[in-house]
Design a protein around this nucleic acid. Sequence first.
RNA 1: CGGAGUGUGGCCUAGUGGUUUAGGGCGCCUGCUUUGGGAGCAGGAGAUCGUGAGUUCAAAUCUCACCACUCCGACCA
Length: 414
Amino acid sequence: MRQSKLFCKTKKEGFKTAEAISHRLLIRGDFIDQLASGVYSFLPLGKRVHRKIERIIREEMTALGAQEVYLPILTPKRLWETTGRWEKIDPPLFKLKDRHRKEFGLGPTHEEVITELVRTRIKSYRDLPLYLFQIQAKFRNEMRSTGGLLRVREFIMKDLYSFDREKEEAITFYKKVKRAYFRIFKRCGLKVVCVKADPGTIGGELSHEFMVLSDTGEDSVLICSKCDFGTNIQKFGKKKTCPQCQNRLIKKNCIEVGHIFYLAEKYSRAIEANFIDKKGKKNKIIMGCYGIGLGRLMASIVEVHHDEKGIIWPIEVAPFQVHLIPLSGKKVESQSKRLYQDFQAKGIEVLFDDRADITPGEKFADADLIGIPFRIVVSEKTLKKDSVEVKKRSEKKIKLVKIKDLSRSLINLC
RNA sequence: CGGAGUGUGGCCUAGUGGUUUAGGGCGCCUGCUUUGGGAGCAGGAGAUCGUGAGUUCAAAUCUCACCACUCCGACCA
């Protein structure tokens, strides 16, 4: 992508009342634009990052044997009444009426919808287990939105739903999802703590939250200073030492990026989603549901990976892998164009700062703000040695690399 | 929903009743110059001072109402 064509206007100053660092940096870097409180547009850079996160999640879901579906956002009132959540769900539904005065809710989660879908076509134990997921918009009528993308009213969420024959099978899958979640967050460059949680209005018997440790977090957890133990503060009471290794527990702020629930029969009972087992007996389908908020995850990555100059994207979620920055000069121009084409041919995602009449300082400042992992500077100085400068966004040191060796070393790094 | 705060060109802001036909910086447009950390000079465009009502000879400035956004509480991915 040529930066001169990129729909992105970075700002030198963000708005001062925003508390969350991710909020300020994503706005300044023009990744997102706010339309209303808790309602955001994703601009090309932001959309690219979001798509990378989607890709990671989609891969991990597919690896679990789950199949992707699309479920409606506009959902009829009667479906919500089967579980009593038309009135009771918290945060409340966004409700609206059609021209015939029929009532609908904008889906904040899809247990009812998917259970209804599965009910009409799963009748036999032979059809189970079944795992379906969706990556789409959810609407939540929150009391208040906060911290940019950290808590919003419209957002893209991955929801996975599991349908099993019995508890043991369902719990085994639950554990598999838990491991998949750790992989997802790791690929996003995040260390998470998984803690036992309260099922809330989703309901069910067992649930775990995945927490990213970050000062901006609204939640807090107790983590062990030595081992990997972590727990919810309310659940743990006043104890000060780790039950696993007896070392000291520390309180940390955190952001909830994922939540998994073992639902058992809660929804299959209400919606009468049954199957016939081997012995010909009717049973309720055993369910689980597993959510990740993509925008919140994206903001959490920024909360963890940034410095005073801007964002430092982990390679797998970066909007581009390489930021190619030519300084002035005829030779520089032709050489960098060649590099740009070469990278594209090799499948390296590159943002080419071909903007004219922009001083080096401004290019560098933008590069630091946008946070692409590798920066390559081409200048008269470097070309005298048939080289370019390669700098990692996460490091201070700059390396001179011979142009003939460049593509190969980059492919290894990306 | 309760509490606190803010609202002045796209962004950051000065201005707290009267030479304010609202000032500056960034950004934008034109021309020249410049090119290793957000450049320089010259010229230019762009604002019903959140909205409405009121007080006053006079309102961006005071009063009231409404709206919007931010932050704290509760809830959540």
